[in-house]
């Protein structure tokens, strides 16, 4: 026997290609699923179905939520004059964990990347511009990733927003706090030096 039965092959194929999962991991996960009691696999399947059914994008900021608008957009204590733009919902979670941001968000759904066929039209720029034109936001914080695509997206955004007279800022990139300078990777350290600030 050089191949698994059809349904096992099918399972492996469906697992393979999930983020971070190659053919070998897919095979391992599939065989693991087959070895556990069926209550466990039922639970997993139900969790996937329920998440998919209940979760939608917030109608305002496009973060993931189970209502029409997300908890952050609903929260009246948030500062609505500061708006932070991120690529993905997981970036919202990351910034929320920091506990140092009290403004609201806008999730673009990615970064501009022609290689992947993602242009400005594929992202939620128009919706963002609509929100900004309402006039409440005074500062736009761009928190896209510090890579080529994230930087290009930031630049594109800052140009679009400039005519509206809103302050546009970019989060700094630099050293991890609590780390040793000696152990910082050289590229990060170089960037941190380039963007040093006066004391």
């Amino acid at each position: 026997m050089t191949r698994y039965t059809e349904s096992v092959e099918n399972l492996i194929e469906n697992l393979c290609g999930l983020p971070g999962i190659g053919p070998k991991s897919a095979q391992r996960i599939a065989l693991h699923l087959l070895s556990v009691p069926s209550e466990e696999t039922d639970r997993l399947a139900a969790a996937i179905v329920s998440a998919k059914e209940n979760v939608r994008y917030c109608s305002v900021c496009f973060n993931i939520t189970e209502q029409d608008t997300c908890d952050i957009c609903e929260d009246t204590r948030r500062d609505r004059t500061v708006l932070c733009v991120v690529e993905e919902p997981r970036d919202v979670i990351a910034i929320e964990r920091s506990g140092s941001y009290r403004g609201i968000y806008h999730v673009l759904g990615g970064a501009i990347s022609p290689i992947d066929g993602v242009g400005p039209e594929e992202l939620r720029f128009a919706e963002l511009m609509g929100r900004l034109r309402q006039g409440q936001v005074g500062e736009l914080v761009i928190a896209t990733n510090p890579n080529a695509e994230g930087e290009a997206t930031a630049m594109y955004l800052s140009r679009m927003v400039r005519p509206l007279g809103i302050t546009v800022t970019r989060i700094a990139s630099g050293l991890p706090v609590g780390g040793d300078l000696e152990y910082a990777d050289e590229v990060t350290l170089g960037r941190a030096l380039e963007h040093r600030t006066p004391l």
């Binding site: 501009i112 022609p114 080529a148 290009a152 594109y156």
Partner: peptide
């Protein structure tokens, strides 16, 4: 990235200039 854009630039229509801009900068 810029070459990917130029490869099928017709697709972008009027938005081409806006789409090119950040890559020209970069």
């Amino acid at each position: 990235q810029r070459n990917a854009l130029l490869r099928d630039w017709e697709k972008y229509g009027r938005a081409l200039e806006d789409a090119m801009d950040p890559w020209d900068d970069a």
